[in-house]
């Protein structure tokens, strides 16, 4: 016993413990507000999903009928499908682009790096609503900046009806989201790249590894914590996509032609707050929460597995 203590590094003598009420007092605003505005609504959200409501004041118990309705409603399935497509695109298109930008920037000088970082981050100062309003005009057929840009570079797209042709609605939302969020995730990747051990990369290079091999086998594994964090955050964000389609497709409350731009939260917003069925809205909320929860768990699990290898 005494032997093991002696081997430990010398620790400073344990400090006298504070025994007063201060921490409870300091946390009391959080505790009170969280009980009132998180715990109580949370319990209500559980209960509400089993009721049919008409506005905030009248309700009738309907058991599981809200959930049964959701899974037989083809509009809801469409929303689920669209949102999942968007989440997949976010992870497999947006994040690689962010990573590519971060890699391009990482070897530059500090001043240049600061400038480009500022430029690429700047769309995030503008909220989703404002971006949606602006891009709604940029996507105007024949005249819009984006239509003209496509025409100039690719000789295609001047007449493209981005926001009214079902086939083009999701691509338009994705393009807007790329403009908005590629720079945001780049900030995380850039910060992580700067913590990667340079000597490891150098050793791999001397051993004859190609830049691609160095990235895939040295750089990426050593920043996996950040990668997992960013993937989880962007999946969570994707499943809550709402304001962007709402403002881009404002004439149909975000649904778009043939429901091509409909997301889960758009569906929730329309049914709960426009039609007044808060119960159905809560049921949708639970489906979203469950999806987010399961996907996060799977990703954390996969991250652990990768670590053990």
């Amino acid at each position: 016993m005494s032997g093991s203590v002696a081997q430990r590094p010398v620790r400073p003598p344990s400090r006298p413990r504070y025994k007063g009420k201060a921490p409870y007092l300091f946390l009391s605003p959080y505790l009170v507000l969280t009980t009132a505005f998180f715990a109580v609504p949370f319990v209500n959200a559980i209960l509400l999903a089993f009721y049919e409501t008409n506005g905030p004041r009248s309700r009738a118990f309907v058991g599981l009928a809200n959930f049964v309705y959701l899974f037989t409603d083809s509009v809801f399935r469409r929303a689920l499908f669209n949102t999942t497509v968007f989440a997949l695109v976010s992870v497999f298109v947006q994040l690689p682009l962010s990573m590519a930008l971060a890699l391009l920037l990482n070897s530059g000088g500090d001043r240049v790096k600061g400038f480009f970082r500022l430029v690429f981050f700047s769309p995030n100062l503008v909220g989703q609503v404002l971006v949606g309003i602006l891009f709604g005009v940029l996507f105007t057929p024949r005249y819009g900046l984006i239509n003209r840009g496509f025409q100039m570079v690719l000789h295609w797209g001047l007449e493209a009806r981005w926001l009214s042709e079902p086939r083009l609605i999701m691509p338009a939302i994705v393009l807007t989201s790329l403009w908005l969020w590629v720079g945001f995730n780049m900030i995380y990747f850039l910060a992580a790249l700067q913590t990667v051990d340079k000597t490891l990369q150098e050793a791999a290079r001397i051993d004859g590894a190609s830049p691609w091999q160095i990235f895939w086998h040295v750089t990426l594994p050593s920043m996996r914590h950040v990668v997992i964090f960013v993937v989880i955050m962007s999946v969570i964000g994707s499943y809550q996509l709402f304001e962007l389609p709402l403002t881009l497709l404002s004439e149909s409350y975000g649904y778009g032609a043939n429901d091509a731009g409909l997301t889960l939260i758009t569906y929730l917003n329309y049914n709960a707050f426009r039609c007044g069925d808060l119960g159905l809205g809560s049921a949708v909320g639970w489906v979203v929460a469950l999806i987010i929860f399961v996907i996060s768990l799977v990703q954390i699990r996969l991250g652990r597995l990768a670590e053990e290898d």
């Binding site: 969280t34 505005f37 109580v40 509400l48 905030p56 004041r57």
Partner: peptide, 20 residues
């Protein structure tokens, strides 16, 4: 745990509370 709960889930009951 509470950070895992998406805020939209709470919006409907919160709205009801704010009305009350």
């Amino acid at each position: 745990g509470s950070m895992m709960i998406p805020s939209v889930l709470l919006l409907a009951p919160l709205y009801k509370m704010v009305v009350d």
